[in-house]
Design a protein around this nucleic acid. Structure first.
Lengths: 133, 133
DNA sequence: CACTGTATTGACTTTAACGTAAAAAGACGG
DNA sequence: CCGTCTTTTTACGTTAAAGTCAATACAGTG
């Protein structure tokens, strides 16, 4: 049973515009079916869109995202260049691990700032209290 | 003892161009000293540049990075709007945590693809061996 | 001082990722 | 069937983040 999504359904679900989805299509990132001129998105298309948006959140360009998705898309059988695929996977993994470290560092720094701010707040509080006496 | 860095030193260290550093300066992200017209970067400037690049790797825009850095820069004392600062920190943290989840998911998917590829490889290997018999 | 190489400035160009507007074609409710 | 609404297509505009190029300006060296 093939359930389809319309373009507006997806734009609402993911909070993007139709322009964006058509743009992704023009870039070859999704290829919805057509009923006449109308676009019909399969659940698979929907998943791809999710992957695209996730990639974007991580700072990957659309081209990089495309490469990633194509890796998923290929069944392992039809992948002629297995060695090459494995290399790409390794490279992506390295990038992701670096991003993880970047995030950890940034979170730590945020905590420091937060601690400073909170300390400053309670300090102000105590001033207020002493003035209240 | 104030040790300075030249612009080219930094471009080499971080693998960016002079144009990029001057652009960041024009955006108010760094403000190196001058000796005549020549730019002199302090270790503090260097740290800021590191932060900028880290932010970029995580997919933040330069403006977002600027906000982040300004949060670090402000001593907690001179932060008039402590509540506002804490809110911003919380928002950033949420974003970062989401990115962490995104990374985890992507890593998992990469592992799946990798497993498939490796399985396919050993399969091919065994074919070769059986032909060798 | 002349030469050479590096820095700076300013202007213009480029690329990615959409936004916006206009015109035409379906889709639908009454 | 008519008007309204949505969708599509086409084309041009925009923004962020630099890249590229040209015209100097120094700075150090022999």
């Amino acid at each position: 049973m093939q359930r389809y999504f319309t373009i507006t359904q997806l734009t609402q679900e993911f909070d993007i515009t139709t322009r964006t989805l058509r743009f992704y299509e023009a870039q070859g990132l999704v290829t919805p079916h057509r009923r006449g001129r109308q676009r019909l998105y399969t659940p698979g298309d929907r998943t791809r869109i999710k992957l695209i948006l996730r990639g974007k959140r991580l700072g990957f360009s659309l081209n990089e995202v495309k490469e990633l998705i194509e890796m998923y898309g290929k069944a392992p059988g039809e992948t002629g260049q297995l060695r090459l695929l494995l290399d790409k996977i390794a490279a992506r993994r390295e990038e992701l691990l670096e991003k993880q470290r970047d995030i950890e560092l940034t979170l730590l720094e945020l905590e420091e700032v937060e601690a400073g701010a909170k300390a400053r707040m309670t300090e102000i509080q105590s001033h207020v209290k002493s003035e209240e006496v």
